[in-house]
Structure formats: structure tokens, C-alpha cells
């Protein structure tokens, strides 16, 4: 089953895929462009991986990590399918990151690799933008790079675990204005999904609604206001996001600050 959370007709609804459109929990059928797509689940802890594809690490001039590089994000960062993300006027390099997101379905504490998938509810697509201008070497990547409002698009669907026979063999690709910019496959992750769940649950209890953004392959490029960015994962979904400038967010002046 492919599940979504959407707003339409004055309410927030759970919905499932129904042909080309959606069917709300109350039975109504709606088109995908007449709803506001919300993140497909209510997030608890948002965990993200850095440098989890060897070629991407090379691209950013890093060796692959011996231990997974993880950082956390707040719920402010999330925006649903067909959402809008701001590019500050002073940014010179803002890039997308297409990532497979693994949503936890039941508590996981010290879980062995072999049992890891028992704790997965499903999968979705994330596009975790970064603005490299704001990188600092303190708790890098710092939240000013990675936890900006609306900088992590997620959705459209939460796809049930059992509908994805092998999440470690899925093609990923990102297009900008229809041109393919990033291509990869989840089989090239440095630390695979069972390893990540086993490693994380070894020091922290994962709970239902926690989500692991598993990192991005090589092929990141700068995006500009007006660009339509589609992050797509085979069998999971096609996540559209549009870049907007400071003016659209009521900001003016250098640095995007109204003050």
C-alpha cells in the first residue's frame, strides 16, 4: 500500500494511492493536484546520514567513514511533495540530495542486522537540501546547513515495507527542470539499512515514526529559484519540489535578512 497525508476540503486526511489520484480515508476520490501534500507520516526523531555513498564522499573530497556519520534534524525542516524550498540570496551553492528514507514502525533497541527489517514500517523519498555556504567545522554538517525551514522535502508516499522486496537494490535519480543530474542505486550505500538500524539501535532506542535518511549518491549540483527538482526512487515515488527566492518568503536584502 502507498499511503499519504494530505490537506484538502478544509481537513487533514490520510489517503492511499488510487489509480492516478488518491482515495481519502473517508472514501472521497481526489486528484493529486487538488490536495496539499504533507509529509506522509508524523516524524519523531529524524536521523540523516552523511557520506554514505562512496562516490559522493569522493565528490566532496572525503574518504568513506569507518563509522556512520549521522546528524539529526527537527520537524521544521520537513515539507511535503509539491512543496517550495527557499534559496537565500547570498547562497552560492545549494544542492539537492535524493535519499531513500526508512521509517521505523516499532521500537528498536540493540537489534541484530538479521532482525532489522522487522522494525521498518516502510519507505519514502527525501530530498535533503544543503547550502554549502553556511558550512562550519563545528558539529559539521551544522544545523544552519541542514535544518533550515522547509529544506527537507519528503514524500509523496509511505510505501509499506512488504511492498518493497529489496530496498538495497533501487535506482535513484534526480532531475532538475527535466534534465537528469544525479543517478545512483541504493546497493552502493557504504552502510546498508540493516547495518544502520543495528548500529543506531546499539546506542539509542529507535521509536515508531523515527526516520533514517540513508544518504545520497554522487551528482549534486547547484539549484536556482524557479528550478523544479524531482527526486525519484524506483518503486517508492517521485518527489517534486520547487526552489523559490527570498522575495517569495517576504525577505529582502543581502543575506536574506529583513532586519
Amino acid at each position: 500500500m502507498r499511503r499519504a497525508r494530505v490537506a484538502c476540503s478544509g481537513g487533514v486526511h490520510e489517503a492511499v494511492a488510487d489509480g492516478e489520484g488518491l482515495r481519502l480515508a473517508d472514501g472521497r476520490r481526489v486528484r493529486e493536484d487538488e490536495v496539499v501534500w504533507l509529509p506522509p507520516f508524523t516524524p519523531r526523531t529524524i536521523i540523516a546520514l552523511g557520506l554514505n555513498y562512496a562516490e559522493h564522499a569522493k565528490e566532496l573530497a572525503f574518504g568513506a567513514q569507518a563509522e556512520p556519520l549521522v546528524f539529526l534534524k527537527g520537524p521544521n525542516a520537513l515539507v511535503g511533495h509539491r512543496g517550495v524550498t527557499r534559496r537565500p540570496a547570498d547562497a552560492t551553492f545549494m544542492h539537492y540530495e535524493c535519499e531513500l528514507a526508512v521509517v521505523i514502525g516499532k521500537p528498536a533497541r540493540r537489534v541484530a542486522r538479521a532482525r532489522a527489517y522487522d522494525h521498518v514500517a516502510g519507505y519514502t523519498v527525501a530530498n535533503d537540501y544543503a547550502i554549502r555556504d553556511y558550512l562550519e567545522n563545528w558539529y559539521r554538517p551544522n544545523l544552519r546547513v541542514k535544518n533550515r525551514d522547509g529544506c527537507t522535502a519528503i514524500g509523496p508516499w509511505l510505501v509499506d515495507r512488504d511492498d518493497v522486496p529489496d530496498p538495497m537494490r533501487l535506482a535513484l535519480r534526480t532531475t532538475v527542470n527535466g534534465k537528469v543530474k544525479q543517478q545512483g542505486n541504493t546497493r552502493d550505500m557504504v552502510h546498508d539499512i540493516p547495518t544502520l538500524i543495528a548500529w543506531l539501535s546499539g546506542f539509542m532506542t529507535l521509536g515508531a515514526g523515527d526516520v533514517i535518511l540513508t544518504g545520497t549518491p554522487e551528482g549534486v549540483a547547484d539549484v536556482k529559484p524557479g528550478d523544479e527538482v524531482v527526486a525519484e526512487i524506483e518503486g517508492i515515488g517521485r518527489l517534486l519540489n520547487t526552489i523559490a527566492d527570498d522575495a517569495a518568503f517576504g525577505r529582502a536584502g543581502p543575506g536574506g535578512s529583513a532586519a
Binding site: 526523531t45 562550519e136 521509536g207
Partner: peptide
């Protein structure tokens, strides 16, 4: 550091 350097103490903590 220039900007505030932040971190999160997640729900399990």
C-alpha cells in the same frame, strides 16, 4: 564558530 552551532537531544534522551 560564526553562527550558533546547534544540536538536538532526541526524544529517546
Amino acid at each position: 564558530p560564526r553562527a550558533p552551532v546547534l544540536y538536538i537531544k532526541p526524544a529517546n534522551t
